[in-house]
Design a protein around this nucleic acid. Sequence first.
DNA 1: CTCATTTGTTCGACAAAATAGAAACTAATA
DNA 2: TATTAGTTTCTATTTTGTCGAACAAATGAG
Lengths: 112, 112
Amino acid sequence: MRRTYLGEFEEVVLLMVAILDGEGYGVTVSQALEEHTGRIVTFGTVHNTLIRLEEKGFVQSELGGATAERGGRRKRLFRITALGSEALQEIQQLRQNLWQLLPPHTFRLGSV
Amino acid sequence: MRRTYLGEFEEVVLLMVAILDGEGYGVTVSQALEEHTGRIVTFGTVHNTLIRLEEKGFVQSELGGATAERGGRRKRLFRITALGSEALQEIQQLRQNLWQLLPPHTFRLGSV
DNA sequence: CTCATTTGTTCGACAAAATAGAAACTAATA
DNA sequence: TATTAGTTTCTATTTTGTCGAACAAATGAG
């Protein structure tokens, strides 16, 4: 099946990583996700997705240095790769094109 | 997993159904898909997705009348429902908002 | 110095979606 | 009426999406 596409959730998470611009890790991504999309998911969910994105080469991660804050394990910070932003652009472009092709009445009230 | 979101592929297929404007069924949707996205999938793949979309209430189907063509079983024609077009708009709107938040340098050459 | 607490990460499991391939139907026509 | 082209449906497998809990490290309190 050799898929290379971005899944639905993967895409949103990738977008969040890009938005967080280097400050993204399990916790911040979950928060941003909730804040911007209203979607609530567990860390595990986010982290698994992050790992899968990394396997696909869409993000890169590294352990952050020791924090100054109280307690806490070292963060694994994620950032988007060139491949990742290409994938994002590609899929967005494709959808944009498809939207152009929609018959105008599709979104009139009471279309069904 | 109690999902209500549109999956990645589901969304593209839903878009195709809307574009085909009442003429969409297994074969035409696969063709349109290939034509517009370059993505090649089997009828079975498309049909399964169509059925799932119908279960979710995003499309509606009915059997077409007897064809005049050489043979062939009656077609099951699909069209998008109001709920379907709402879902489409909602997810597109959300992504549009997220794109606004992307830091400008995300798409500069050599960003990684 | 050691240990409970805090803040994170990772693992294991499983449901749903994506996908392929082939079987089963159906109706027009030779 | 047997053939056959055009479609739908069934079955099986891989990926994604999702959760819950186990595990790990840094710090401050005693």
